[in-house]
Computed example of a mutant assay.
Amino acid sequence: MFFRTIVTISIISFILTCLLIFGDSPSFRNTPIQKLRNQLLNVLRQLNQFYSYLDQKTNGQLIFILGWLIPLGYLAVVTVCFYQFWIKTFPIIESTTSTLSYYYIILSMFVIYLSTVIAMFSDPGSINATSLKTYPYEPNQLIFFNNNLCSTCKIVKPARSKHCSVCNKCYLLYDHHCIWINNCIGYYNYKWFLLYLVVNINMLGYGFIVCFKAINLQLTNYTLSGFWNLITRTNDTNKITGIFIILCIIFVIIVIIFTALHLRYIYLGVTTNELDKWGEIEYLIDLNLLYKVSPPINNQMFVEKASVRSKTLSEETVYISLKDETILIKNVNIADYNIIPVESVISDIDNEYDKGFWNNLKDRIFV
Rank of each mutant, 00 (worst) to 15 (best):
S25K: 03
C18M: 08
N42Q: 14
L40I: 08
V7W: 06
K35Q: 13
L44Q: 13
I33P: 00
Q34I: 08
R45I: 15
T5Y: 15
N30M: 02
S10A: 12
Q39K: 11
L36Y: 10
R29D: 11
L40G: 09
N42M: 12
T5L: 15
C18Y: 13
I9Y: 10
I11V: 10
V43A: 02
T31P: 06
S27M: 03
I6P: 07
Q39H: 07
L40M: 12
S13F: 10
V7P: 01
I21S: 00
F14N: 09
Q39S: 14
R45T: 15
I11L: 05
R29H: 14
Q46D: 12
L47R: 04
L47D: 05
V7S: 03
P26H: 05
L20S: 09
L16Q: 09
I12H: 01
T8Q: 03
Q49Y: 15
F28H: 06
T17R: 02
I33D: 03
T31S: 08
L47V: 08
I6S: 10
N48C: 10
I33W: 04
S13Q: 09
L20V: 05
L41H: 07
G23E: 02
Q39A: 05
T5Q: 12
V7H: 02
Q39F: 13
N48G: 13
L44I: 14
I11S: 07
I6M: 11
L41Y: 07
R37G: 13
L40Y: 15
I6H: 05
L47P: 06
I21D: 07
I12G: 01
S10C: 04
S10D: 04
S10P: 08
L47F: 09
L16Y: 04
G23P: 00
R29M: 03
Q39N: 13
Q49C: 10
L20K: 02
V43F: 10
L47E: 03
I11T: 06
G23K: 00
R45C: 07
R37N: 15
F22K: 02
R29T: 10
L47Q: 06
